[in-house]
Simulated scan of single mutants.
Amino acid sequence: MRLLSITVVGAAVVAAGLAAPVSSEAGADGTAVRVEPQVARPGTRVKVVVPGCTGGRRAAESAAFAESARLKGRSGRVDLKHGIGAGTYPVTAHCGGRTYAGRLTVSTERSWPSLLPGALNPQMARAQGDR
C-alpha cells in the first residue's frame, strides 16, 4: 500500500512539473516566450507559445532547437537537438517587428528516480552499496 501511495504522489509531482510553463523574460508589452514542458530532454518536441505574437513573419529560435520554430498564430512546435547538453538556453521569438525572449531548460536526467523508494531506485541502490 505504501508503494502505491508513493507511486501516486510521484506521478502527480512529475505531471505538475511537466505542465508548468518555463520562466521567461517579458517583452515590452508584458508578454514573453513560454516553452512547454518546462524541462525537456534532448530530442523531444516542445511547444513554443508567444501570447503577444501578431502579424508579419513569426518564428522562434534557440541553440537548443533542431531548426527554427515556425509559429502558426501564437504558437508552434519544434524538436530539440538530440545531442544537446543539459542547461538553460535562451529562446528568441520574432513576430513582425517585435522580439520576445524566454528560456528553455534541457535536462539529460530523468526526474522520477529520486521519487522511488530505495529498493526501486537504481541511483539509491548504487549509493547505498558504496557505503
Score class of each variant (00 low, 15 high):
Arg2Pro: 09
Leu3Gly: 11
Leu4Gly: 13
Ser5Met: 03
Ile6Lys: 09
Thr7Leu: 09
Val8Leu: 09
Val9Trp: 11
Val9Thr: 14
Val13Glu: 01
Val14Ser: 07
Ala15Lys: 04
Ala16Arg: 11
Ala19Pro: 00
Ala19Leu: 02
Ser23His: 10
Ser24Val: 04
Ala26Trp: 02
Ala28Glu: 14
Thr31Lys: 15
Val33Glu: 06
Val35Ala: 09
Glu36His: 11
Gln38Trp: 03
Gln38Cys: 02
Gln38Pro: 00
Arg41Ser: 10
Arg41Gln: 13
Arg41Trp: 05
Pro42Thr: 03
Val46Gln: 04
Val49Gln: 06
Val50Pro: 04
Val50Gln: 06
Val50Glu: 08
Cys53Glu: 12
Cys53Asp: 12
Arg57Trp: 04
Arg57Thr: 15
Ser62Cys: 09
Ser68Tyr: 00
Lys72Ser: 14
Gly73Leu: 01
Gly73Ser: 01
Arg74Cys: 00
Arg74Lys: 14
Gly76Pro: 00
Val78Arg: 08
Val78Lys: 08
Asp79Trp: 08
Leu80Asn: 05
Leu80Met: 07
Lys81Ala: 04
Pro90Thr: 12
Pro90Lys: 11
Pro90Trp: 11
Val91Gly: 05
Thr92Asp: 07
His94Ser: 15
Gly97Glu: 13
Arg98Val: 11
Thr99Met: 11
Thr99Tyr: 10
Thr99Ile: 14
Ala101Asn: 13
Ala101Cys: 00
Gly102Val: 02
Gly102Arg: 02
Leu104Asp: 03
Val106Phe: 06
Ser107Glu: 02
Glu109Met: 08
Glu109Val: 09
Glu109Ser: 11
Pro113Glu: 05
Pro113Asn: 03
Ser114Lys: 13
Leu115Ala: 13
Gly118Leu: 13
Ala119Gly: 03
Leu120Pro: 06
Pro122Cys: 05
Gln123Lys: 01
Met124Val: 15
Ala125Tyr: 00
Gln128Ile: 11
Gly129Pro: 03
Arg131Phe: 03
Arg131Trp: 06
